[in-house]
Design a protein around this nucleic acid. Structure first.
Length: 464
DNA sequence: AATGCGCGCAACCGCCTGCGG
DNA sequence: TCCGCAGGCGGTTGCGCGCAT
């Protein structure tokens, strides 16, 4: 992109009759004009703004101004402690992927998060303090322990870690390596008053720890908190996600028959419109004994080649859950959802938030968002679940000891696909059948978002 | 009161990617 | 396949404000 002549700047050549583009702070008049333009023409095509309005701003500047300051539903003000913790968690998992982090913090912009993190990290580094809260470094520890291979696979899928940035776990451990969690907490000034971020982990772990595990979900989960940062990332496509609230999911309670993910009392599940059979991840047990099974082809007529062959030891790519093929693949699951969304186009992409479309079509935008949300589940929530499991059990678990009962997770050596060291993590996916939930795919809120009235409590026989 | 300094934030810049011709 | 364009992203810069000296 060529630099525009600067306002303060040098003389323009005689031949250059182009209007000098303005730089610097925006005026309220400029803001108003940009807002008016977006209202009339929608987002996108930013370079046309200059042609269609009297604004003397380049397209990039207009886009930046809109996304960072003018678009609706922007949340201004300082970050809440929950948001701060979520940012730390996201940064630990994603590195400097500000835009992706912002997608999980509704109302916040990438620039805002970036500025916050950079100043905070700079300050803490200068003070010789660890840049991550102790909770996050614990996550790292277990993430590395349990998900090394899974992450390695996923990196191919979505360039998981930025090659130019430090690996987050390395940077975290480097800054914290000499400190015990307690010492680090003390040194970092994190107090016990800070809300525990990994409640979900505890809920899930407890849920898998007993035969009556679902009852453990009677306790509120982080997703049930009205302002929970755990829940917010999923607000964009709330109709695709269901999370445990204050009531357990009955084993016979079916998920909503629409495409999506569920985090019910039995864990995380993938369900699908028109399909009364849902596959659920069971809650993670502390024994970490079993193996897991992810996608099947029951949702579509044919497995994609990649999903059918990639990383599915035991050839279970096309099997139903009952078949328990000894394989799991994050890629495959996302591939499956990807295919489902492709073929179904189940809901309108717009979900509020003032987004008016743009260059990304509704379906593809939905895909991206859902993929991000799913990745958050895998990046943050499921690793967090491990973080609260007994650490010693993690290291002691071997493939041979995996009992293959539902409701747990196992590690097993892997020589498939990426030939990386470490263990695969697999999850058994029992089949639950039946009907229920409203499943109408409407915008009706079925879980708490920002304090809105939660209708879960009013659902009879539903998820909540 | 004046000055210096640090911090937070808004905006810019350059690179990269995706897409269409 | 190449090329140009538009948009997105991450890093960097610069300004304004508040605080300490």
């Amino acid at each position: 992109m060529k630099r525009a002549p600067e306002e303060k700047g040098e003389e323009m050549g005689e031949e250059e009759e182009e209007v000098a583009l303005k730089k610097g702070p925006w005026t309220t008049a400029e803001d108003a004009e940009l807002v008016q333009h977006v209202r009339q023409h929608g987002e996108g095509n930013w370079n046309s703004v200059q042609r269609m309005t009297s604004l003397l701003r380049c397209g990039k500047s207009c886009r930046l101004r809109w996304t960072n300051h003018l678009r609706p539903n922007l949340k201004k003000g300082s970050f809440s402690p929950d948001e701060e913790l979520l940012i730390a968690q996201l940064h630990a998992q994603l590195g400097n992927k500000w835009a992706r982090m912002a997608s999980h913090l509704p109302g916040r912009t990438d620039n805002e998060i970036k500025n916050y993190w950079n100043t905070r990290a700079k300050r803490r580094q200068r003070a010789g303090l660890p840049i991550y809260p102790p909770e996050v470094q614990l996550n790292h520890h277990h993430l590395n322990l349990n998900f090394a291979n899974a992450n390695a696979k996923r990196r191919r899928y979505d360039d998981f870690f930025s090659s130019s940035s430090l690996s987050p776990p390395q940077s975290a451990s480097a800054s914290n390596v000499l400190l015990s969690p307690d010492d680090a907490a003390a040194a970092a000034g994190y107090t016990s008053a800070r809300p525990a971020p990994l409640d979900l982990a505890g809920q899930l772990a407890m849920g898998g720890n007993t035969s009556g595990g679902a009852l453990q979900f009677l306790a509120a989960t982080p997703f049930s908190a009205p302002s929970s940062p755990w829940a917010k990332p999923f607000a964009r496509n709330a109709h695709f996600f269901r999370f445990p609230h204050s009531s357990p999911v009955s084993p016979t309670t079916p998920p909503t028959p629409t495409t999506g993910l569920s985090l019910g009392g039995y864990g995380l599940g993938l369900y699908h419109a028109g399909d009364r059979t849902a596959r659920l991840f069971p809650p993670v047990s502390q024994s970490l004994g079993a193996r897991v099974e992810l996608p099947s082809t029951q949702f579509r007529p044919a497995m994609t080649p990649a999903a059918a062959t990639g990383g599915l030891a035991g050839g279970g790519g096309g099997a139903l859950m009952q078949d328990h093929p000894n394989a799991a693949s994050f890629e495959a699951m996302m591939q499956e959802l990807h295919d489902v969304i492709k073929t179904e186009s189940p809901v309108p992409a717009a979900n509020g938030g003032g987004e008016t479309g743009g260059v990304i079509s509704g379906d593809s935008k939905l895909e991206v968002e859902l993929k991000d949300d799913i990745e958050t589940l895998f990046d943050i929530i499921i690793p967090a679940t491990f973080a609260t499991a007994a650490p010693e059990s993690l290291t002691a678990t071997t493939a041979a000891s995996a009992p293959n009962n539902s409701g747990s997770v196992s590690q097993h050596s892997s020589d498939d696909q990426d030939h990386s060291n470490g263990a695969d993590v697999t999850i058994d996916l029992p089949v639950l059948t039946g009907g229920g939930g409203d499943g109408d795919g409407s915008s009706e809120q079925e879980w708490c978002i920002d304090g809105a009235t939660c209708q879960w409590n009013n659902m009879s026989g539903g998820i909540c």
